[in-house]
Design a protein around this nucleic acid. Structure first.
Length: 559
RNA sequence: UGCCCCGUGGUGUAAUUGGCAACACGUCUGACUCUGGAUCAGGAGUUCAAGGUUCGAGUCCUUGCGGGGCAGCCA
């Protein structure tokens, strides 16, 4: 795939590396893995990927890229009750879109079920695993607590032959769900609870999205995950902090088996302010209809950001900016917004669109003309375009104030502003309806102030955007605000109560300049002075364009 | 109150491994500007605490305090 960013983002040889790069540098120096670097991204297909996964993908793929290693996409599909093909498909699409290059290696943990079964038999033969008849409740009770050791299962000392036979019968489907498990025989009094004879296999008579009905016993994550990494020859198994306590268990399994033993390294998962980041909660938002699907532009999912107008570059850059460490953090959403503004500023063409229109009549203008506008001041190659100007215009309601506070330098009664790329106009008369609402402005223009003409020295502080009433067209524009009203909703037991009721505002009759007419889904623009917008691919039709506001422009005007 | 991990500006990370605490975002000020954008210049703001080792500690040691994780046949 592309490697355009290698130079700019490659920290190898640079001065600032995260602690994982330090470890890999050291491994390379000691030739621990024969010079190889092989990472992977191992999602469970039980939901859509979110921005936290993006951090992990960028980390893992970035390492493979920077060290000329390999990067696998592997589905950790060991639980048929929660996994679906839809999720597999979305994950592949999202990883590709982000730029994680797994080449042809789309792998599945479930493809290793046979090997894992053989290894389990191996452990039984070594006297390191046994079939246990305790039910879930009994196992929980005999596990002990954080401060008390557990009790050994009465089935712990079955003979190897008996265990082999029982495990084989589990495999054949002779026992009902939950009636038996295969457990590792480690230490019921270990201070690390993960080592208290953890379960390796459970009986689940359920169709697997990939393996069909071939299996009715499924490996637990603890048993499967390290094995999958080992089978694929992964050198550095990078995962999040909560698996730190499990590392001794993975080490134990791999050492008992005597197979390739990757090094696990844990880092802190991403938390973003004003949103939630657990698949369980995101699933609930989707299932209970609080949002419009996994790709709702308010969702912190990769598909949500894509639909909202984020670029893969901006998300990759965000991952660089936030770095990688081991301490829990709550990242300010402003860092993400900076990343997308920074990217779109350079690449999005400028256009004019009036979201909440206020009619303006230029009483001393009676003609029509086309004015030249710059498409992108940051990019000379973007060229220019013509925009129609006429007697009747729309401007933004918020660009006129009858009783302005000090510091307001847009249009006021008797005041002047420049119409972007056009003329300076003066507000002569304010027309109101019976309710006292301003419904129209009567203005005059100064023909000497035509943009680019240079025939007037008149200076005004304010410049506002506008569209020609007879040439513009209507479109729907969706404005998004943060999904939650509190900084860290995930920490709140009543997190659903913290949903922002105003996170979506739909404007059905925004007025857009005619050049926008032929926009295609996912096209990105800056609506001058309003923000960056992207054509929605879900609700846009041949008859109606729908725009999503990706992010506002920075606004330094206070109050 | 068992085990494990982590404490650096408001936020996220750095600190050549013991040598003047820096970068980005945010924030504030100014310049420029036909986007109150961008750009440019500048400012404010940081090592959880106490001991110890050392000429010298964000870094090493001890203790304390604070935060997080673990008692699914989830991952």
């Amino acid at each position: 795939m592309n490697n355009i960013d290698i130079k700019s983002t490659n920290p190898v040889g640079g001065k600032s590396k995260n602690f994982i790069y330090e470890i890999i540098d050291e491994d390379l120096k000691t030739n621990k893995w024969g010079g190889n670097v092989h990472t992977r991204f191992p999602p469970e297909p039980n939901g859509y990927l979110h921005i936290g996964h993006a951090k992990s993908i960028c980390l893992n793929y970035g390492i493979a890229r920077d060290y000329n290693g390999k990067f696998n996409l592997r589905f950790d599909d060991t639980n048929p009750e929660k996994e679906e093909q839809e999720y597999v498909d979305s994950i592949i699409e999202d990883v590709k879109w982000l730029g994680g290059d797994f080449e042809d290696r789309i792998l599945y943990g479930s493809d290793y079920f046979e090997q894992m079964y053989l290894w389990a038999v191996d452990l039984i033969k070594k006297g390191k695993a046994y079939v246990c008849d305790l039910n879930a409740d009994e196992i929980r009770q005999s596990r002990g607590t954080l401060t008390e050791p557990g009790k050994e299962s009465p089935y712990r000392n079955r003979t190897i032959e008996e265990n082999l036979e029982l495990f084989e019968r589990m495999h054949k489907g002779e026992f009902p769900n939950g009636s038996k498990t295969l457990r590792a025989k480690i230490d019921m009094s270990s201070p690390n609870i993960n080592l208290r004879d953890p379960i390796m296999y459970r009986i689940v008579h359920e169709e697997h999205h990939r393996q069909g009905n071939d299996w009715c016993i499924y490996p637990t994550y603890d048993w499967a995950h390290g094995n999958e990494d080992s089978i694929e020859g992964i050198t550095h198994s990078i995962c999040t902090l909560e698996f730190e306590n499990h590392r001794p268990l993975y080490d134990w399994f791999l050492d008992q088996l005597g197979v390739h033993h990757p090094q696990q390294i844990e880092f802190a998962r991403l938390n973003l302010s004003y949103t939630v980041m657990s698949k369980r909660r995101l699933l609930q938002l989707v299932k209970e209809g609080f949002v419009d699907g996994w790709d709702d532009p308010r969702m912190p999912t990769i598909s949500g950001y894509r639909r909202r107008g984020y670029t893969p570059e901006s998300i990759r850059n965000f991952a660089e900016i936030i770095g990688v460490a081991k301490r829990d953090a709550l990242t300010d959403i402003a860092l993400l917004e900076y990343a997308i503004r920074d990217d779109l500023n350079k690449r999005a063409n400028r256009v004019m669109a009036v979201l909440k229109p206020l009619k303006v009549v230029i009483t001393n203008y009676d003609s029509e003309e086309e004015l030249e506008a710059v498409n992108n001041p940051e990019d000379p190659d973007a060229g220019t375009r013509k925009i129609p100007f006429s007697r009747e215009l729309f401007i933004e309601q918020s660009d006129f104030m009858e009783n302005p506070p000090k510091g307001f330098y847009r249009l006021v009664p008797g005041g002047e502003v420049r119409l972007r790329y056009a003329y300076i106009i003066k507000c002569e008369e304010v027309i109101k309806n019976d309710n006292g609402d301003v419904i129209e402005l009567r203005c005059t223009y100064d023909p000497e102030t035509k943009s680019g003409a240079g025939s007037s020295n008149k200076k005004v502080k304010g410049v506002i955007h506008w569209v020609s009433a007879k040439n513009c067209f209507d479109a729907e524009v969706r404005l998004y605000d943060r999904l939650f009203t509190v900084e860290n909703p995930g920490a709140d037991e009543d997190w659903l109560g913290k949903l922002n009721p105003n996170s979506l505002e739909v404007i059905s009759n925004a007025k857009l300049e005619p050049s926008l007419k032929n926009s295609k889904p996912l096209d990105k623009f800056q609506f001058e002075r309003m923000g960056y917008f992207c054509v929605d691919f879900k609700y846009t039709t041949n008859e109606k364009l729908v725009f999503n506001r990706t992010v506002t422009l920075k606004d330094s005007w206070k109050k």
